[in-house]
Amino acid sequence: MKSMLQRKVVRALIVVWTLTVLLFLYMPMMAVVMASFTKQRYFRFPVNAWDTRWYEKAFESLSVRDLFWTSFSVALLVTILSVVLAFFGALAFARYDWKGRKMYQRIILLPIFFPQAVLGLALLLWFSSLGITTSWHTAVFAHMIWILPIVTLIMSIQVYSFDPVWEEAAYDLGASRLQVLREITLPILSPGIISGAVFAFLLSWGNFPLSLFTTGADQTIPEWLYSKMVSGYTPMVPTLGSLTMGGAAGFLLIAFLIVLAVRRLRAGKPD
């Protein structure tokens, strides 16, 4: 039998280990946030003079607004398109057994494993040989190639646990196809749809290598951060970095609240 002391030591070690991992993961991000509140024009750490003027500048700047809208439009469009396509794709994968299904599933997943920079370059070559001018529209397409398989995969997990007999039962009880979709399929698959959407948005929002090659004259926030790091550093870099992170965190929070609200609504009142 273990003594009380041994147990206490083990528990303490677990706490220390957990804290170390968290520190390792989150300290760099905290450093960026702290750097964004500096008064200086140069990137220095630790920060010794604090100020919020870079945030004021960021909010006033029209080019920052452009960056934000470009990133947001790309991410939003990628999310909507991926969720719709992945929804039907996942249903097709999980529900029907057709010849070559496994093979197709693997081939469609393959782009995830390519280096994104190579994928971006390949797409750029492809776009230019087709005579398509790259802009944030083409970036949406590029992001989709990488993100759609991931979203499909996430949704498939939920769809595999979906029993089509629920749809049959609803249909048998008089529901139309549309009512079945609204009453049965969508609500039961909603956790998968929501997590798929969250992944799609965040992966697109933070994507750099694909955007770099395919946005053309438009610029997303990660691209801007990179270009400013390479030449012409301004403390706006950590500021905007912090804001993007904040945006992602805020998006996650909203998604979480939606899930919570949906769950409460369902459990609470009869429909």
Partner: peptide, 15 residues
């Protein structure tokens, strides 16, 4: 007409 299914097919997300 309607049917009671072999696995019942009760809707898991509804009360």
């Amino acid at each position: 007409t309607c049917m009671v299914f072999q696995n019942l097919a009760l809707f898991p997300h509804k009360t």
